[in-house]
Amino acid sequence: MTLISPIEPDTARSTRSSPYIAGIAHSLASRRRDSVEIDAEMGRPAGWLERLSGVRSRTVAGPDDSQEAMAGRAALAALKAAEISLDGIDLLLFGAAVGRQPIPATAPLIKREIGATHLPFPAYDVNATCLSALTALDIAALQIAAGRARTVLVVTSEIASRALPWQSDPKTAGLFGDGAAAIVLTATPPTSRQAGGPAGGSMSLRFRDFLMETHAEAYDCCTLGAGGTRFDYHDAPEAFAAHALFRMDGPELFRLSAAKLPAFIARLLDRLGWSHDDVDLVIPHQASPLALAHMARRSGFSGDRIFNHVAMTGNLIAASLPVALSSALQDGRIRPGMKLLMVGTSAGVSLGGAGLES
């Protein structure tokens, strides 16, 4: 859990247009599966899966790690860090690629999990696959800017270890892990009672701006085809079963991101009014070790300015970005006065990013 505390408001922009992150926390799944353990199960030599995927270990849901349980733990910890009670929430957004089930949305379940069923605030889902939590933060910021909310709880939770193609594509299957995170976004800065950031000092984060673009020509690069309206289980059970595993075209995704990422980052920096040199730390979607190395080469940022912990957690899909932000705070990588860039890609295919200031 990370505690966040105040900075002085920026007189150049109103607090309504730049809300504050008042609390953030993450909750990883309870089990840790090392790649060497999976090597043995698959009859492969030690080190095989790590060389293939780049991931040394990943967190995997155990019996007590339902999607809503992980989400609830993160949400309550973030609210505690922000010193905000349940009745101070105006809106709950749940951002994830895959919810508990198609209907109802997962957000009402999270509301029930944290004990807020008696309160009337709305709760709904946002799905932009791996960018879901970041997109939910943007929607939260817009709701605050419009005066429709003062405190928004953004929650994400993913159980990505299911529906993986271990037999046909272990390189892809080996990438993923399970976890959750939550962020409390407020219209005004945290109060002075919230002293003591992750390194013992006084710190807050301000959500500056957001940019997203979608390149639908790559729609089929990442798919989980079953479970929606595409296949009727009753009429076509074989087709339903055949598309019940995640599929990813890594080379095509690599090609598209290589072509689009530099210009996207340039547009995002221009929107923020920043240069490359202004950015102190980049917190990317922890897609894979290979993807992060590729990003460093293509984005113009040196490796020491890119937060990288995917080898120890795996790709947490939508939870990846907020877990990385929470971890960077916890590890003392973020200090007062820093400019942070959060950036990633998602199935569809979309690129998204946001600027934060500490």
Rank of each mutant, 00 (worst) to 15 (best):
Ile334Cys: 02
Arg335Asp: 08
Met338Arg: 06
Leu329Val: 06
Arg305Pro: 01
Pro336Cys: 05
Gly337Asp: 03
Ser326Leu: 05
Ser320Arg: 08
Leu316Arg: 09
Leu321Arg: 01
Gly300Cys: 03
Ala319Asp: 06
Leu321Asp: 04
Ile317Met: 14
Arg333Glu: 09
Leu329Asn: 05
Thr313Asn: 14
His309Pro: 01
Ser302Asp: 14
Val323Leu: 08
Met338Ser: 09
Gly314His: 12
Ile306Lys: 01
His309Arg: 14
Ser320Asp: 07
Asp331Gly: 11
Ser302Phe: 03
Gly314Trp: 10
Pro322Ala: 10
Leu325Gln: 13
Gln330Ser: 15
Ser320Thr: 08
His309Glu: 12
Gly314Phe: 11
Arg305Met: 01
Met338Gly: 04
Asn315Lys: 12
Ser326Cys: 14
His309Asn: 12
Leu316Asp: 08
Val323Gln: 07
Gln330Thr: 14
Val323Glu: 05
Asn308Asp: 14
Ile306Arg: 02
Gly300Pro: 04
Pro336Ala: 12
Arg305Trp: 00
Ser327Trp: 10
Ser302Arg: 15
Gly332Asn: 01
Asp331Cys: 05
Met312Phe: 11
Asp304Ala: 11
Leu321Thr: 14
Phe307Gly: 00
Pro336Tyr: 02
Pro322Arg: 09
Ala311Lys: 13
Leu340Pro: 13
Ser326Phe: 07
Pro336Asn: 10
Phe307Thr: 00
Phe307Glu: 00
Asp304Arg: 07
Ala311Trp: 09
Asn308Met: 06
Ser320Met: 07
Asn308Phe: 07
Leu316Gln: 12
Arg305Lys: 13
His309Gly: 04
Arg333Lys: 11
Ala319Trp: 07
Leu329Glu: 03
Phe301Trp: 12
Ser326Trp: 04
His309Met: 07
Leu316Asn: 08
Arg335Met: 10
Leu329Ser: 01
Lys339Tyr: 01
Ile317Thr: 15
Ile334Lys: 02
Leu321Met: 15
Met338Leu: 01
Ile306Met: 01
Phe307Lys: 00
Pro322Glu: 09
Ile317Lys: 04
Met312Cys: 10
Met312Ser: 15
Gly303Pro: 07
Pro322Asn: 10
Val310Lys: 03
Val310Met: 04
Asp304Tyr: 04
Pro336His: 09
